[in-house]
């Protein structure tokens, strides 16, 4: 199986690569359209600022290409937020795969939402089928609940911990940093 991690300068690319290597898979890091297109599965990582990330994707000619992918794609953290239409972070136009606006947390509790939190399953899902275990989150912006929400986390407000639309799977938490529970989610994605 060929697994490609989209390598556009996201902060957690190495961590995601190592997480798959621990599971016995050797991912290819690439920003080459042909290389990504030929993958069986694609990982879309992301840590950092939405606007900076979109600028990178545009500069590397990837922003039109990613929505056209037909193989299973896993977006992680900012990678999930960038699948949406728009982000309040830097008022950024994103990839538009999911017609939602990424919002900033109202700081009624500490922001960033940093640490381990539980999720509840919205529906049965092949990838996001975690049973009340906690996962590691670090973020200041969130994807609101919508019809593609697969898991819900509640911090300040209930928000999408994970989503799925067609072949696009994405989670706000970091499966690569969520211990055994996160490893299971990565295994579920590999098994699709």
């Amino acid at each position: 199986m060929k697994l490609v991690i989209i390598n556009y300068g996201a902060g957690n690319t190495q961590s995601v690569k190592y997480a798959f290597q621990r599971l016995g898979v050797n991912p290819v890091l690439s920003n080459d359209v042909n290389e990504i297109f030929s993958a069986d599965k694609v990982i879309f990582p992301g840590v950092g600022h939405a606007q900076a990330a979109m600028n990178e994707l545009k500069a590397q000619g990837l922003e039109k290409f990613i929505p056209q992918l037909t193989q299973p794609v896993l977006g992680i953290c900012l990678g999930m937020q960038l699948l949406c239409q728009f982000s309040e972070e830097g008022n950024t136009e994103c990839l538009g795969i999911i017609n939602e606006t990424v919002k900033k947390f109202e700081p009624t509790l500490k922001v960033p939402h940093m640490g381990w939190n539980g999720t509840t399953n919205q529906e049965k899902n092949k990838v996001f089928n975690n049973k009340n275990e906690q996962l590691y989150f670090v973020h200041s912006y969130y994807v609101p609940l919508n019809k593609f929400t697969t898991e819900v986390c509640d911090y300040i407000t209930p928000f999408s911990a994970s989503i799925q639309k067609d072949n696009f799977y994405a989670c706000q938490y970091h499966p690569e940093k969520s211990g055994k529970v996160g490893e299971q989610i990565l295994k579920n994605f590999l098994a699709l």
Binding site: Q21, R22, H174, K177, S178
Partner: peptide, 8 residues
């Protein structure tokens, strides 16, 4: 550490 560790 990053190669081996599955927590932050």
């Amino acid at each position: 550490v990053a190669e081996q560790l599955n927590i932050p």
